[in-house]
């Protein structure tokens, strides 16, 4: 397997210009033919965030310090994982016509999809940074670790995407199941509420949710403004490594037979 991985990586490297062109055309096509173009991908989540912020701070009234910033940080990191996985699930099946006709390292398709999603997410993270000032959040040097956290989320999402994209080739119900799963997880993960509002007996179960750690971890630079604990760092790194390894393992094992199963 390590051999296969190195081979795929070196092939992806030799097709790096393809990767670049795929990402470029993906981004271009997403915002083509709309008046506001690229702005939409910011406006769309921001409106959604705004609605959630309004509902939960003014109507349901979750009482905590600078709740809106707490919510925004949670939503940005959640979106990185959820949006990326949902879109990249289709990356192999949508490119089946290509895979049937030209030899390319198949990893480029999920990779291009995930990277192009992350380019959107990064601009959203920049907006979050601006909001940090507007909402008078705590600005600290911990912000410098945010790129590292985003890299961890990237590999976690890539691992999930590889797993889902592979599964989708064999089980056509995959995207439906994933969409429902993410909807449920959105409420089961402390994104719109803090973990502290839960009773300690339920909290135990909520801590089994791997997504929770990424959301929480992301809040350290943007909301808590302090260094995350070593323990949390180890957990996040371990989940990332495990998910990515599982994703790439299944992908590499199955990629040869994709063509027989479209």
């Amino acid at each position: 397997m390590p051999n296969k991985l190195m081979q795929e990586i070196s092939e992806v490297y030799s097709f790096r210009h393809l990767l670049f062109n795929l990402i470029k055309s993906d981004i271009k096509l997403r915002y083509k033919n709309s008046f506001l173009g690229f702005l939409w991908h910011l406006l769309n989540p921001l409106f959604y965030f705004g609605i959630l912020a309004l509902v939960f701070s003014q109507i349901i009234r979750i009482e905590m310090e600078n709740y809106v910033l707490f919510l925004f940080a949670g939503l940005v990191s959640w979106r990185m994982i959820q949006q990326t996985s949902l879109v990249a699930t289709h990356s192999i099946v949508n490119n089946q016509e290509l895979i049937k006709k030209i030899h390319t390292p198949k990893l480029v398709f999920p990779l291009a999809s995930v990277i192009s999603q992350f380019i959107d997410h990064l601009t959203l993270a920049l907006v979050l940074f601006v909001f940090l000032f507007i909402l008078k959040g705590k600005i600290s040097t911990v912000l410098f670790i945010s790129p590292l956290i985003i890299i961890l989320i990237f590999f976690f999402s890539l691992g999930l995407s590889l797993f889902f994209a592979t599964t989708y080739v064999y089980v056509k119900d995959t995207p439906h199941v994933i969409a429902i799963g993410f909807q449920a997880l959105f409420f089961l993960t402390p994104i719109i509420y803090p973990l502290s509002i839960l009773s300690s007996s339920i909290e135990k179960f909520f801590r089994l949710n791997p997504f929770f750690y990424f959301i929480e971890y992301f809040r350290y630079p943007f909301y808590y403004a302090k260094m995350p604990s070593v323990e949390l760092t180890v957990i996040v790194c371990a989940i990332t490594l495990l998910t990515f390894s599982l994703g790439i393992y299944i992908f590499l094992r199955k990629k040869e037979s994709f063509i027989f199963n479209f």
Partner: peptide, 30 residues
């Protein structure tokens, strides 16, 4: 492979963009 011409084409992209996309699909550099 001239197996199916235009396999790598994306109809939404322009001819020129497709030249680059198809070319890199063959493993060439930009």
């Amino acid at each position: 492979p001239l197996i199916e011409l235009g396999a790598g084409f994306n109809p939404e992209l322009t001819g020129s963009e497709n030249i680059f996309l198809s070319g890199t699909l063959l493993g060439l550099s930009n």
